Simulated assay, not measured.
Amino acid sequence: MTPEPLGGRASAVQAEADNHPTVRTRDAASIMLLDRSGRHVRVLMGKRHSAHVFMPDLYVFPGGRRDPGDHRLKFAGDLHPAVLRSLRENEGRAITEARARALALAAARELYEEAGVSLGRAHKRQEAALPFLPDLSNLRYMARAITPPGLPRRFDTRFFAVFADEAEIDPSLVLESQELQDLQWIDVNDFSSLRVPEITAIILSDLRTGLESEPSLPPERTVPFYFTRHGRFHRTLL
């Protein structure tokens, strides 16, 4: 599908990009943990430490880059076939199933490392990389975004969502970490009190639209893909 330019939204990002040399993109994953127990759906967000080079002092979803070890993580439940299929799409060049699954496993690992939330069954094996077996079966693939050229860090990030009740997660059991501080449950309809990256605001807007269209966020969905080309911010669909 032909990319749709989003014009001025990228102006501030592009201005910052001009100050840094081009760096290679790295795979990353981010996860929106959703609490729908109240009147409005809430999403877990936290503030990045001020010492971070990439997006300091901004509120984001738990997430981070895909580590080499994520390929080797054992899991209890696999991705929905529609989610796995969408994840493998990569501008006409499909990525491997193992790499696609590793992105989802990275999201589960980061949720645990940054918020203390286990997305899966606990176990007591001392040699395991995580104290739980990740259950990927309830993950929805929501969006993909590539950091514009020229920024000090560049990531090819896949955004996932999961409902806390489906994953049997208690929303009260979240813990701050060195990566994310001031963890908060934010109403997806009102995050005006937080400083968030522009792409995060866009993804939140997509989330609201998805929830309004179909509150269950079915796995079979069209996934928006955001990227910058020749200084213009684009949106296309996977």
Rank of each mutant, 00 (worst) to 15 (best):
T236C: 09
Q178A: 13
T2H: 14
P62V: 01
D67R: 04
V60M: 09
W185M: 10
A129W: 09
D156H: 06
P56N: 08
F61N: 00
F132G: 04
E127T: 12
E110P: 03
K74E: 15
M45N: 00
V41N: 02
T228G: 07
F155D: 02
D57A: 09
T157R: 01
G46Y: 02
R195E: 15
L34F: 04
S193P: 05
L119G: 01
V53Q: 13
V23Q: 10
L237W: 15
E198Q: 15
A15Y: 11
P152N: 08
T25C: 10
E127M: 11
T25Q: 11
I95L: 11
R144L: 04
Q184D: 10
H71I: 11
L105M: 11
D206K: 09
R99N: 13
M142Y: 05
P131R: 08
S37R: 15
L44M: 07
S192T: 10
L207V: 06
E16G: 02
H40I: 11
V23W: 06
P21D: 13
L33P: 02
A115C: 08
Q14E: 14
D135W: 00
I199F: 05
E168C: 12
A161P: 00
E176W: 04
L194Y: 13
R208A: 03
L136H: 07
P148N: 09
V162F: 01
V23S: 11
L44V: 08
L58Q: 13
F132E: 02
H20G: 12
R153C: 09
S37N: 14
D190G: 09
E166M: 07
F163M: 07
F233Y: 14
E113S: 06
L175F: 15
H49N: 13
V23D: 03
R48F: 04
A128I: 10
L103G: 01
P56W: 03
T22P: 08
F225D: 11
L237E: 15
T157Y: 07
P62W: 00
I202T: 13
R48P: 06
T22V: 14
T22L: 14
G150N: 02
L79S: 01
S213D: 14
A115D: 02
R42K: 15
A94M: 14
E220A: 13
P215E: 11
R144G: 03
R125Y: 13
H234N: 15
S177G: 00
H40P: 00
G116W: 08
A17I: 05
R109A: 11
A15I: 09
R66P: 01
Y141R: 04
G46W: 08
V23H: 03
A106K: 00
R229T: 12
G92I: 10
N19D: 15
R9Q: 13
R109P: 02
R140C: 06
R232F: 14
A164V: 09
S11G: 12
D35V: 04
I202Y: 10
D67L: 06
D165S: 14
R9N: 12
V41E: 03
L194I: 12
L130N: 03
D57G: 06
L58P: 07
A106T: 03
A107N: 02
